[in-house]
Amino acid sequence: MKRFIEEFKSFALRGNVMDMAVGVLIGGAFTSIVTALTTNLIQPILDVVTGAKMYTLQDVAGFANAFVTAVVNFLITALVLFVLLKSINKLLSVSLIKKKEEEAAAPTTKVCPYCKSEIHIDATRCPHCTSELA
Rank of each mutant, 00 (worst) to 15 (best):
K2H: 06
F4P: 01
F4E: 08
F4Q: 12
F4L: 14
F4R: 15
E7F: 00
K9R: 07
A12E: 07
A12V: 10
L13H: 05
R14T: 06
G15A: 11
N16K: 15
V17H: 05
M18E: 11
M18T: 07
D19F: 13
M20Y: 11
M20H: 10
A21V: 10
A21S: 10
V22R: 12
G23E: 03
G23I: 07
V24F: 12
V24S: 03
V24Q: 06
I26V: 13
I26K: 04
G27C: 03
G27W: 03
G28A: 06
G28Y: 05
A29T: 04
F30I: 10
T31I: 10
S32D: 13
S32N: 12
I33D: 00
I33C: 04
T35Y: 07
T38K: 09
T38V: 05
T39L: 05
T39V: 14
N40T: 04
N40H: 09
N40D: 06
I42T: 10
Q43E: 06
P44A: 00
P44C: 01
I45P: 01
V48A: 11
V49E: 02
V49Y: 04
V49I: 14
V49C: 02
G51A: 00
G51L: 00
A52P: 00
A52W: 00
A52F: 03
K53G: 01
K53R: 08
M54L: 11
M54V: 11
M54T: 13
M54S: 12
Y55P: 02
L57V: 02
L57D: 06
Q58W: 04
D59H: 02
D59A: 00
V60D: 00
V60K: 01
G62V: 01
N65T: 05
F67Q: 00
V68C: 03
V68Q: 01
A70M: 00
A70C: 01
V71I: 10
V71M: 03
V72I: 11
V72C: 00
F74D: 01
I76L: 11
L79V: 12
L79K: 09
L81W: 02
L81D: 01
F82D: 08
V83D: 02
L85H: 03
S87D: 11
S87K: 15
N89W: 05
K90A: 10
K90H: 12
K90M: 11
L91G: 13
L92S: 13
L92D: 12
S93H: 12
V94Y: 14
S95I: 15
L96T: 13
I97D: 11
K98V: 15
K98D: 15
K98L: 15
K98Q: 15
K99C: 15
K99W: 05
K100Y: 08
K100G: 11
E101C: 10
E101P: 07
E101L: 14
K110T: 05
V111T: 14
P113Y: 09
P113A: 13
Y114F: 13
K116P: 14
S117V: 14
S117P: 04
E118V: 08
E118H: 04
I119W: 03
I119H: 04
I119P: 03
H120T: 13
H120L: 14
D122V: 08
A123N: 09
T124N: 10
T124Y: 09
C126M: 08
P127S: 11
C129Q: 05
C129M: 07
C129K: 05
T130C: 09
T130H: 12
S131C: 06
E132N: 09
L133Q: 03
